[in-house]
Simulated scan of single mutants.
Amino acid sequence: MLRFRAWYFAAMVLVPFAVSASNVHVVTTVHPVNLIVQELVEGVGQSETLLPAGSSPHDYALRPSDVEKLKAADLVVWVGPELESFLTKILSGQENALSLTSQETITFRDYEGHEDHDGHESHESHESNGGHEEHEHHHDGIDPHLWLGPDQAIQAAKVISTALIELDPLNRAQYEANLSRFIVSVNETVQNLKEQLQPVRDNGYYVFHDAYGYFEETFGLHNLGHFTVSPDRRPGAKTLIAIRNTLKKSQVKCIFREPQFSPAVINSVTNGSDIKIGTLDPMATDIASGQGGYVRFLQELGRSFTECLK
């Protein structure tokens, strides 16, 4: 009878904590960051992405249902005002919000020296904006596309893991194991991609917007330039003329478009040439959620670069 009472008491004490831990709910703003978070909450919680698939944080309009999700989450992981400026007001006083760009342990790339050749038609609404409120973006500081850098993804994962452990200390061992597995898988993938991309490292290319610096620096790729710093800013006439001149004089192997935005500008400068047009998707739209998602994202980027540059 004493043994039964001891077991019953232990069960009554432990079950509520287990239920609470299993309900840890994280909301991330963009899909590629959620691919990282999903690895970290495996077996102890769940995460979801705020922005719908294919949406860009550069021109997203917040909905009332989004606000409810942010308030109900145990933890909100966002990149920061440099990317999701539409969230700055609502998250500034929210205790459950974790801004990655404010973390000193993440090594950021600076946009300085990466500006366009001339002014833009600034803050002009994109066709995909549908007339929504325009947002101001900052492009004279850090590059917020940190998920495109394997080193930065690992650094962000460590920060997020620390926040999860503080939120749910009883599952510390699981979070630490998940983080360790994530780091190993990313490092192995980086080594494989370095070998894969080595033959095309010297081949020049243009990208649609300046988002791939972290990935390019990791693998030593030869980016000749970009059409715009941010996709919500259309490139000016001087930029397009400079790109056309470069295409005539240089050995440009490929120009990369992005599925979220119209390729009209790219088509205008490549018209009549035999330069290949590839696709890079910084938002990981077609990468399925689940374990190994972030690694699959890196592999897909590597495949896109390899196929267009070879």
Rank of each mutant, 00 (worst) to 15 (best):
14 L>A: 13
33 V>S: 03
13 V>M: 09
58 H>K: 02
55 S>N: 06
55 S>Y: 14
33 V>T: 10
40 L>G: 05
37 V>Y: 02
42 E>W: 02
17 F>Q: 13
30 V>W: 04
60 Y>C: 01
31 H>Q: 14
48 E>T: 06
35 L>M: 11
13 V>Q: 14
26 V>N: 12
44 V>C: 10
51 L>V: 02
33 V>E: 10
49 T>R: 00
16 P>C: 03
35 L>E: 09
51 L>S: 07
19 V>L: 15
44 V>W: 00
57 P>H: 09
13 V>F: 10
59 D>Q: 02
14 L>R: 03
46 Q>Y: 10
48 E>D: 13
57 P>D: 13
41 V>D: 11
34 N>W: 03
12 M>T: 03
24 V>C: 11
53 A>I: 14
25 H>P: 00
23 N>L: 08
61 A>Q: 13
26 V>R: 13
23 N>R: 11
59 D>V: 03
18 A>Y: 08
26 V>M: 05
50 L>R: 04
54 G>H: 14
62 L>R: 07
15 V>T: 03
11 A>Y: 10
63 R>G: 05
52 P>R: 01
57 P>Y: 01
17 F>V: 04
18 A>R: 09
49 T>A: 15
28 T>F: 00
40 L>A: 10
13 V>E: 15
31 H>E: 14
37 V>H: 09
52 P>H: 01
47 S>W: 04
20 S>A: 13
54 G>R: 03
12 M>W: 09
50 L>Q: 08
14 L>P: 02
47 S>V: 10
32 P>E: 07
35 L>K: 07
36 I>Y: 04
46 Q>G: 05
43 G>D: 01
48 E>S: 15
62 L>A: 01
29 T>C: 07
25 H>W: 12
29 T>W: 05
59 D>N: 12
20 S>I: 01
48 E>L: 04
18 A>P: 02
32 P>D: 00
19 V>C: 08
46 Q>E: 15
17 F>D: 07
65 S>Q: 01
14 L>M: 13
33 V>G: 01
39 E>C: 08
30 V>Q: 12
57 P>V: 03
59 D>G: 07
25 H>K: 12
26 V>S: 08
15 V>D: 00
42 E>P: 01
40 L>R: 00
23 N>F: 05
